[in-house]
Simulated assay, not measured.
Amino acid sequence: MAQAETHHVLPLPEFDRPVKLLIVVAPYYKDIADELVAGAKAEIEKVGGSWELVEVPGALEVPTAIRIAYRQSNFDGFVALGCVIRGETTHYDTVCNDSSRAIQLLGLEGACIGNGILTVENREQAVVRAEAAGQNKGGGAAAAALHLIALTRRFGNEKKDIGFKPLREGIQIAGEAKGPTTA
């Protein structure tokens, strides 16, 4: 196996207010997922941040879970984790491309996401990339999310509220206002 090329790693950002991230993991390959999660947790904790963890069945469900939390919760950012190992069919290409594309589209909507879904040819490559004491791709995904959160805070476009916002005080059903009206 070829040695990984060295590359520049940005120092972690500093935050004046704590950050809260959601780690979404597909534990299809549980041992690999556990290493990715360990790396992500450690990176978030280095900046004094907190995290919650949710598991989904597979890599295709990771972006959907992030989208649900992005719309309905108050996380500053998200870490997408999982592993897709090439098999004998084209399903590998579908899962890799569609999960990556969905995560990218969520990012373009403003979600601060670090993508740590490994797409590899074999288990050995996955293990090398996942190990928290090795290439630590889970930690790298968390660091990416943290950098995007820092940019969002710098440019002043944080989410101000969570969940759905009512149009006005009253409840509107099929065009008729119900409840108190305000003028």
Rank of each mutant, 00 (worst) to 15 (best):
A2F: 05
E5H: 06
H7E: 08
H7V: 12
P11F: 02
P13Q: 09
D16I: 03
K20M: 02
L21P: 12
P27S: 03
Y28W: 15
D31M: 10
D31E: 15
A33V: 04
D34K: 11
E35P: 01
A42F: 00
E43M: 15
I44D: 04
E45M: 13
G48H: 03
G49Q: 08
S50E: 09
W51N: 08
E52N: 15
V54C: 00
E55N: 11
E55S: 14
P57W: 02
P57H: 02
G58A: 14
G58I: 10
A59F: 00
E61L: 12
I66F: 04
R67W: 00
I68E: 05
I68M: 11
Y70M: 02
R71T: 02
Q72L: 07
Q72D: 12
N74E: 09
N74K: 11
F75S: 06
F75N: 05
V79P: 01
V79S: 00
A80F: 10
A80S: 15
L81M: 10
I85L: 13
R86I: 01
R86P: 04
G87Y: 11
G87L: 11
T89Y: 04
T89V: 04
T90S: 14
T90N: 12
T94S: 07
C96T: 11
D98E: 12
S100N: 13
S100R: 15
A102H: 09
A102L: 11
I103A: 09
Q104C: 04
L105E: 14
L105C: 01
L106N: 04
G107E: 11
G107K: 13
L108V: 04
E109T: 07
G110S: 03
G110H: 03
A111C: 05
A111F: 02
C112A: 13
C112M: 08
I113Y: 01
G114W: 06
N115I: 04
N115T: 05
N115K: 05
G116Y: 01
I117P: 09
E121P: 00
N122F: 06
R123Y: 15
E124A: 14
A126I: 01
V128G: 00
E131Q: 13
G138A: 03
G139M: 06
G139K: 05
G139C: 08
G139A: 07
G140F: 00
A141P: 09
A141K: 03
A144H: 05
L148R: 08
L148M: 15
A150W: 04
T152E: 14
R153M: 04
R153I: 05
R154E: 15
F155P: 01
N157C: 14
D161A: 09
G163L: 00
F164K: 02
K165D: 12
K165C: 10
P166Y: 01
P166M: 02
L167V: 13
R168Q: 12
G170I: 00
Q172F: 06
A174H: 14
K178S: 06
G179T: 09
P180N: 08
A183R: 10
